[in-house]
Design a protein around this nucleic acid. Sequence first.
DNA 1: TTGTACGCGTTATCAC
DNA 2: GTGATAACGCGTACAA
Lengths: 350, 350
Amino acid sequence: MSATYDDVLRVSGHAAAPRPAAKALRIEEVAQIAGVSPITVSRALRQPEKLSENTRRKVLAAVAQTGYESNPHARALRSGRSTLVAAFVSNILSQQFGLAIQGLAEEIEADGYELMIGQTSYSYAKEVAMIRSLRSLRPAAVMFTGVIELEENRQALRELGIPIVETWAFPRDPIDMLVGFSNVDAGAMAARHLATRGYRRLAFIGRSGGRGALRLQGFRAEAERNGQTLARVETVEDVRNIADGRAALTRLLAGGNKVDAAFCANDLLATGALIEARARGLAIPSDLAILGFGDNDTAGEIAPGLTTISMDAHELGRRAGALLRDRLGGREPRQPLQNLALHLIVRGST
Amino acid sequence: MSATYDDVLRVSGHAAAPRPAAKALRIEEVAQIAGVSPITVSRALRQPEKLSENTRRKVLAAVAQTGYESNPHARALRSGRSTLVAAFVSNILSQQFGLAIQGLAEEIEADGYELMIGQTSYSYAKEVAMIRSLRSLRPAAVMFTGVIELEENRQALRELGIPIVETWAFPRDPIDMLVGFSNVDAGAMAARHLATRGYRRLAFIGRSGGRGALRLQGFRAEAERNGQTLARVETVEDVRNIADGRAALTRLLAGGNKVDAAFCANDLLATGALIEARARGLAIPSDLAILGFGDNDTAGEIAPGLTTISMDAHELGRRAGALLRDRLGGREPRQPLQNLALHLIVRGST
DNA sequence: TTGTACGCGTTATCAC
DNA sequence: GTGATAACGCGTACAA
């Protein structure tokens, strides 16, 4: 089968002759044009305050004229610090993580850093491998959408001697800096809201480890405090899509143990549960209330609207970026440990 | 407000004393241990076939024993090639792009390359800036989830002299390699399916430029061929979420010009349109048929199921990665220009 | 305030 | 098949 060509509009049609691997400009050539020594060009770019007004202007003009950009590898080799910021995400496809990464990118790119992204896929093994490769990559800073649990990895990260931000949780002992929130509190918030609404027999759907376990912990404790019954805990180890939520609810209902409300550890699961419940003819929320976490794009759109608990993931990313910028710029951040507010967004599903 | 701590389980609790920035091993130390010269260690790692069986084993043992990893910046500086592969995405949050990036990462990480991600946000200006920074970053290869339209950028990329894969379209003259599909064909496929189902008065919802324009072009041409009427073209410049699709449908309906089927250039828009239509009490598909593009996670889940046209984005990423691997490994790929099949996935919305 | 000399860690090149 | 030498392009350290 042959496809129809996509004849894309070419802006400015002068197809120049193909030349291979143009050698990039070196600092020396810029220096000659500006009539100074190479080190002066370097200073104009890195420590402009050390130059006289006059020289600086002269050099920057030459830089602008030639379009010079210094070689990041040479820079990293000599100075021991690169302009790469590494971000590690458990799952690239998560909307919340994506928003955080966007926020981070907006901050750090303003300072000329490049963003490297790695996906750990919720695997300790991958985490170990990636952190190991950091040792030689020598990034300027690292951000995680999560906290590092393995002590071995924590130690390896400390030894990098670079700014590190963990996120998405509120541990007592972060490696370095933190923009987090309490997952235990999130779980408690969920139980409390359901109690307020009069739901007594509860279920939890989520991963058994990491943040899922923390949300469950808070959920369970608060339910007990309110005299609610946690009748079912439905474990989902690999959350990939909405179908996983549908399947989880199916298992939950098959369990027999009747519940009147389910707290799902993320909105993907909650959305799936909601869709499956309606497909089975259950009335939401009278037959079953559903509460999610994360405020996904679809949460507000799927009838009757998913009640969910969330923080501002984009803001989280920006703050993480701001912390890194401060450190990289030699300023000690005022609040290296930040706790993001959790919001309960009440819609029709509870 | 104070948060409850997330007391994360620490695996292996031996909190070692914090040591700063451990200096990484250099090639020279490994050479001494192996009793060879540094260059021999380098060869054992890069061109093992050039060494005698004996020396190679000796050196690799020393490498394994010490855990040596060469400094990527020094390597990049001297050799002119880094192990960074740069991927540029128009929007990190898109599910389809995310899948492609995952596929790409799986391929190239197997060969020890690192993935760098940049977001162009559908902006020529950002594209120019990022491509410019590539000149000095000297990545090993580049992948785009899209094709480069600006001739100036195409030329700049050619001059990098590195493998480049464009995707997501099927232009006549890709810069280098291509794993694409025809957006014009996708549009035509949409019109044809709607014709088969008996829909006569059509609408298009999508971006006015780039791939949106191509899909519209194919849609319009095929509709004409089938004697259908393209009654409305509703332009959406910035597609961020489902709400944009809802708003677009609202505008479409306000237009008066009655249509019986709408082709949305992506599933985010289609999902929004579907939700809005149902919220207004329209019966889908009898009052209005809706057809999407991209097969998002939610497409099959939202009643009555979104009919959509799609390709396998994860496979696209893998193939792009395989092409890059071939080139980077010195093998000329057999099919440097690939055309991915488009699938029509019929669900309830048409 | 500006410049000189050197070295960051690796690999290209050439010699043996 | 292995090694000696130099060089990649920049910024640190120190001198002027």
